[in-house]
Design a binder for these strands. Structure first.
Length: 645
RNA sequence: GCCCACGUAGCUCAGUCGGUAGAGCACAUCCUUGGUAAGGAUGAGGUCAGCGGUUCAAUUCCGCUCGUGGGCUCCA
């Protein structure tokens, strides 16, 4: 048989040759690292004979598909360990996921996370034994019988579903006594699964359906090397250290939940400084980009929510109140208020594009179990805006919004990934607005991104029911992705509110509406910033920017003089003349992550100097006070505003 | 909301196999005037999350409630 290698070489092999044979023919090293292979892009086990001629690729951990095979095999290994320790365990599903794997199982009398050590030990035993994974294909009816005998009722359900889809042949994988319905492929043997770690236990509904049985989900991760595993575990540890809930408490920024109510944030003075600086800059940047700021109330009559559709479609997430016998709702979104402001009077095409922005606080009922620090709360402030424009303005408007969004991300050195969510034409009737709007707008979104030379991933079927959207995920300092700016067309609300403008032809036209939020939620964004910077916020956001430390009370006057000079240039600073040693006061300032300290002793007083100390870096030596003030001021300067809209 | 785990001083945590509790940090007072990440002494501070049950006795065992965490689901 003729096998083509990735470099284009073709070699002839005996029939019955396996992927492993091919890997060995290339090099011993590759064979050792090989996890699976693809033949003409079809995934295959290394241990089965290659079915035909074709172009082969040997997959290792360096390849995403290789990672997936390793992780999925580790899931099987874990499941087999659980089954041998907890007889009667029924298997659900056990896929590879980003960074690892899980397996959902119904485990009788499972004691919880305390059992993980035992499971790991059993897995290690099987790794040492180096048990081979074996693929076996069979008729679906045969498989039904097999899993019936094994009592694997959940697997039977999956099989019946396959049967419904018209499948007739399935594959199972065995290693040792363990059998699992599985498409595969798998690594050749359990010996390759040496570098794993079990990470946690959680409940998960069978098939993700909350009406179904709750299974036990065990999470784990696996790598091809001890270093890889170690690095990953260190990353998890670093993420734990940066947890905004922990740092938020330590730095006295905020509390959320507890006595104050689940999902509700209380901002302490330090956190409030951060929020206000962000908001001030946000407002200035938006004015510079041609937005007009507005404000809308926190409650509105039920009728408004009926008009917008929220009353019918979003009510499970809304809080209602009684006002003199009339029904009101706490606003879960700012959009309806913005629509009302647009509709405040007849609008002319000359007013468009009209960009209305608001830092609007909204309240949404979220199930208690989903609340998470500042990332998921019940009351939060959206940096919301609606752009009302005409058809021929949409390209410029989209570009303007994307540019503004990227401007904000760049300030904080976030990386990003753009997703373009489009409608699924097969389900056209699920969407609001007329089809023509979708057909004109969707290509414009793509075109705008292309003209800006931004990479993006189009995703069909991911559009909101009311319009296509551009979502930007931001990547933080640890490489984690967070939900970032979102730019959404809305074909629904302009119709519901009957929003029009008078064109140059004197006729009324339906106005187009772009709904966008860049930070998303101010609360969540601050949480994200705290984790991104590990609490060491950039100077302009630091709640306290500079602490002045007189070495003895002799230098108190000089310290106060320096303090006033810093204050005069608008810096947040304080003199720490408490009766503690210098070392102690420095430590205080360091642990509270104040970016700068100016230490003033007798020497500095004599020469009108201050010793500058930079957080995390240490003593920079004495410099003239003028220079010190300028250095701190420069480092705490607010970001430049965007130019033009 | 559901599954599992957890809840001891402001914070981080010991402890009590059932006899009502302790450390470090933080806080207060005093001493200390100290040159780049913790000077010393003294003191105050807890209905052991809340309610109920079992018990001679509950912070400890059981139940419920509330809250928190890891997930499921959903979303900003």
């Amino acid at each position: 048989m003729r096998i083509e290698f990735p470099d284009g070489d073709v070699e002839v092999f005996e029939p019955g040759t396996t992927g492993m044979d091919v890997a060995e023919s290339i090099s011993r090293g590759l064979a050792k690292k090989a996890l699976a292979c693809t033949l003409d892009e079809r995934l295959l086990d290394l241990t089965v004979p290659l079915p035909a001629d074709g172009s082969i690729r040997i997959l290792t951990f360096a390849d995403d598909r290789g990672k997936e095979v390793l992780r999925h095999s580790a899931a099987h290994l874990m499941a087999s360990a659980v089954k041998s320790l907890f007889p009667g365990t029924r298997l659900g599903i056990g896929p590879a996921i980003e960074d690892g794997f899980y397996y959902d199982m119904d485990i009788p009398d499972f004691p919880g996370s305390s059992a993980l050590e035992g499971v790991e030990a059993e897995m290690r035993r099987q790794v040492e034994e180096d048990v081979p994974f074996k693929r076996q294909e069979m008729d679906l009816s045969e498989a039904l019988q097999l899993f019936e005998e094994l009592g694997e009722t959940l697997k039977l359900e999956l099989l019946r579903e396959l049967q419904h889809k018209g499948e007739t042949r399935v594959s199972v994988y065995r290693h040792g006594d363990f059998v699992d319905l599985c498409r595969g492929p798998h690594v050749p043997s359990t010996g390759l699964l040496r570098h794993f770690n079990l990470l946690g236990v959680a409940g998960a509904y069978w098939r993700g359906d909350e009406r179904r049985q709750m299974l036990t989900r065990i999470y784990g991760t696996v790598f091809d090397s001890a270093q890889g595993l170690k690095r990953h575990l260190q990353l998890l540890e670093e993420a734990r250290k940066r947890d905004h809930r922990k740092l938020g408490k330590e730095l006295e920024m905020f509390t959320v939940g507890g006595e104050g109510g689940p999902g509700l944030a209380y901002w302490y003075p330090n956190g409030t400084v951060v929020l206000e600086e962000l908001e001030r800059h946000w407002k200035e940047a938006h004015r510079a980009a041609g937005y007009q700021l507005i404000r809308t109330p926190h409650i509105a009559p039920a009728e408004l929510w009926q008009t917008s559709g929220h009353y019918d479609y979003y009510r499970d997430n809304m809080y209602f109140l009684d006002v003199e016998g009339a029904e009101y709702a706490l606003k879960p979104m700012n959009c309806p208020g913005h629509m009302l402001i647009y509709r405040g009077r007849k609008r002319s095409y000359r007013e468009l594009p009209m960009r209305l922005a608001e830092l609007g606080t909204v309240y949404r009922y979220e199930k208690s179990g989903v609340l998470h620090g500042l990332m998921r709360v019940r009351g939060f402030t959206q940096d919301d805006a609606h752009i009302f424009c005409s058809q021929n303005q949409i390209t410029d408007e989209i570009k303007g919004v994307v540019r503004l969004a990227l401007y904000f991300l760049k300030i904080f050195d976030f990386g990003y990934k753009i997703r373009l969510s489009l409608m699924d034409a097969a389900e056209a009737d699920h969407y609001a607005g007329n089809e023509e709007s979708w057909r004109t707008v969707e290509p414009v979104l793509a075109q705008a991104l292309e003209e800006m030379e931004e990479d993006y991933a189009p995703v069909t079927g991911e559009a909101a029911f009311y319009g296509p959207k551009i979502d930007i995920d931001l990547r933080d300092a640890l490489g984690r992705l967070w939900q970032g700016p979102t730019i959404q067309f809305d074909f629904n609300l302009p119709e519901r509110f009957d929003l029009t403008y008078v064109g140059s032809d004197g006729a009324a036209h339906r106005v187009l509406t772009i709904h966008r939020a860049l930070y998303g939620s101010m609360e969540r964004f601050v949480g994200c910033l705290i984790e991104h910077y590990a609490g060491n916020l950039p100077g302009w956001l630091a709640p306290m920017q500079c602490i002045i430390l007189p070495i003895t009370s002799e230098q108190r006057e000089k310290a106060l003089e320096v303090f006033r000079r810093l204050e005069d240039v608008g810096l947040r600073c304080a003199v720490d003349d408490s009766s503690e040693t210098v070392g102690y006061r420095i430590r205080q300032a360091e642990t509270s992550k104040v970016p700068f300290m100016l230490v003033i002793g007798e020497r500095e007083v004599r020469s009108d100097m201050a010793a500058l100390r930079v957080h995390g870096e240490g003593d920079r030596g004495s410099i003239p006070v003028d220079e010190a003030v300028e250095t701190v001021r420069e480092a705490c300067r607010r970001p430049a505003l965007p130019n033009g809209g």
